[in-house]
Structures are given as structure tokens and as C-alpha cells.
Write a protein that binds this DNA or RNA. Structure first.
Length: 279
DNA sequence: CGATCTACCTGATGGC
DNA sequence: TGCCATCAGGTAGATC
């Protein structure tokens, strides 16, 4: 579910809501969501008593810095939500796997029906050296600004379809199925254009579309599709889905040329495009 | 080594 | 109604 704009929206809200708070108690229901730990109790004791010092993002990962050297890593997978509860009495949603209660009151709850998401505690040092998914993350498209020339060189290093490359977390961190389609529409490029085939102008368009699409999506607090599985920290849906140009718009007229949006399979997943506007 | 596939889960939806 | 197939924001690990 959540890609960079959704994760960044949650990060900004967490920054306001939990920095400075101390963990009073942790409840783990089943251990699948904390599967990197031997037991739920190990996860719990590692967190209890810690104070939240910072909330950062790396690609689609949330990194909650704790006092001392520990970091709570959260990945939401396809269906994960982090929800703030003002009180322990607030009704508990189905599929709530972890509840973190703070000393000043209030809770942070991890809800995840499909259980592809996870939470684990590690040290800052292990994060960059022992956790390969994080160690191998590509550049951050918003925080790591680069020249078009450099971006063009990186694109040309590996000739592969543009959608595949945009979704490769080792190349660029944070882009998934929704935003890769929206970025490619914004750039006027097809999903299957080989990354080493772009003109200088096309490289510029792709870079600009990547930054602008993600920036706009964050401004509108991310995308919630029909099932509303993405919700922010306060349980609210995002607003960017109304701006989607192609994603989940099969058969509907392209907002630019009125030709119908087409759906195709790429690497076993759906991709949406306008065959007239994207070449 | 890289590219491709499959598995991991629950739930919603649509065809019959 | 119900039953079955298909699909869903992601990624790790197996297999070529």
C-alpha cells in the first residue's frame, strides 16, 4: 500500500506526535509482525522505557530513533497502518498486532491485515551494516538532489524497462506501483521504454516528473484507493487519488487527450498508461 | 552476478 | 445465497 508519499505523511505526523514520549508498555499479539525477533517479549523489553528521539524515513521504511543507540524500524508492507490512539479505551481495530503505550498517555498501534508489514528494533550501526534491505537502498528522490546528467548516467547503467527500474528499491528508494505509473505519465514515457534509450530531454522530463509527482502527493497526504487501506496516523484517508492521471483508471478518458487509459501486466502486476500521451 | 517467478497473508469483488 | 477465481499499495528468497 504505502509508498514514499504515504510513508512521509506518516513520518511528519509521527514527528509531531511521538518525539519526546517515553514507552511505558508494549503489547505484541502474535509474533508475525515482529518476526525478526526470537520472541515478542524480546521486542517488548527492548522498547519499554525508551524515549523517542527522532522519526526519519528511508525509502518506505520508518526509522524511529530511540535514546541510546536503538532504532525501531517499521515497514508497512501492503496493508500496514500506524494509528495514534488518544486513550487505551479507544476501540481496537481488527488485525491490531502491536500496541505501544506511552507514559504521557496515548498509544501507537500497528494494524496490518495481510501481515506483510513488520516492526523490529536494531541499533543504528546494525541498520546500515546488518540489514541488507536498508543498506542497499537507492537514492532518495526528494532528499538527494542530483543533476539531470548524473540521473541520465544512472539510467543508462542498466538497460531495463523504466517502470521496473523506478520500482527497484536498490535504484531509487520509495517508489511503488502507483507512483511509477503516475511519474511515467507525467514524463510522457512508456513503462517499457528501456532506461538507456532516453534523450537528454526525456531524462529531464523523467526526473522532473518524479520529483513533482512525489512532492504533490505528499502535499495531498498520499493516495487512498477504493478499499481505503491507506490511512494516516489519525485514521484519515489521503487526497491524492483524485489527482491520479492513470493509476486505477482503466477505460476512463485520459485527462490530457481523452483516449481511454489502458491496463497491462508488467512483472505480474498491473500497470496503467495512456498509449497516446506516453511514448 | 542479474533477471524472473513464487510465496507470504487477509479481504473485497465479480462471475457463475 | 454461496462457491471459486482473481486481484490488491511490497519484498525476500528460490530458481533459473
Amino acid at each position: 500500500m504505502p509508498e514514499l508519499p504515504e510513508v512521509e505523511t506518516i513520518r511528519r505526523d509521527l514527528d509531531k506526535e511521538i518525539v519526546g514520549r517515553r514507552v511505558k508498555s508494549v503489547e505484541v499479539k502474535g509474533k508475525r509482525s515482529v518476526r525478526r525477533h526470537k520472541t515478542g517479549a524480546e521486542f517488548r523489553t527492548r522498547l519499554e522505557g525508551s524515549r523517542v528521539a527522532s522519526v526519519r524515513r528511508a525509502g518506505k521504511y520508518l526509522l524511529v530513533g530511540l535514546d541510546g543507540d536503538d532504532v525501531l524500524v517499521v515497514h508497512l508492507g501492503m496493508s500496514g497502518q500506524l494509528l495514534r490512539a488518544k486513550s487505551a479505551k479507544d476501540p481496537v481495530e481488527r488485525h491490531t498486532h502491536v500496541v505501544i503505550t506511552f507514559t504521557q498517555g496515548g498509544q501507537l498501534r500497528f494494524v496490518d491485515p495481510r501481515t506483510f508489514g513488520e516492526m523490529f528494533v536494531t541499533t543504528a550501526d546494525e541498520l546500515t551494516n546488518q540489514v541488507p534491505e536498508l543498506a542497499h537502498l537507492g537514492f532518495d528522490p526528494l532528499e538527494q538532489v542530483m543533476s539531470w546528467a548524473r540521473f541520465g548516467v544512472m539510467l543508462a547503467e542498466r538497460p531495463v524497462g523504466l517502470k521496473t527500474l523506478l520500482m527497484d528499491q536498490k535504484f531509487v528508494a520509495g517508489i511503488g506501483n502507483i507512483y511509477s505509473d503516475e511519474i511515467l505519465f507525467g514524463a510522457g514515457l512508456r513503462y517499457d521504454r528501456l532506461s538507456d534509450s532516453l534523450s537528454a530531454q526525456e531524462v529531464r522530463r523523467l526526473y522532473r516528473a518524479m520529483v513533482e509527482t512525489l512532492t504533490e502527493a505528499i502535499k495531498m497526504r498520499g493516495s487512498s484507493l477504493a478499499d481505503e487501506q491507506y490511512r494516516d496516523l489519525y485514521g484519515e484517508t489521503g487526497d491524492y487519488q483524485g489527482q491520479h492521471q492513470v493509476y486505477d483508471r482503466e477505460g476512463q478518458p485520459c485527462r490530457r487527450c481523452r483516449n481511454p487509459v489502458v491496463r497491462v501486466k508488467v512483472n505480474g502486476r498491473s500497470a496503467f498508461l495512456c498509449e497516446h500521451c506516453q511514448i
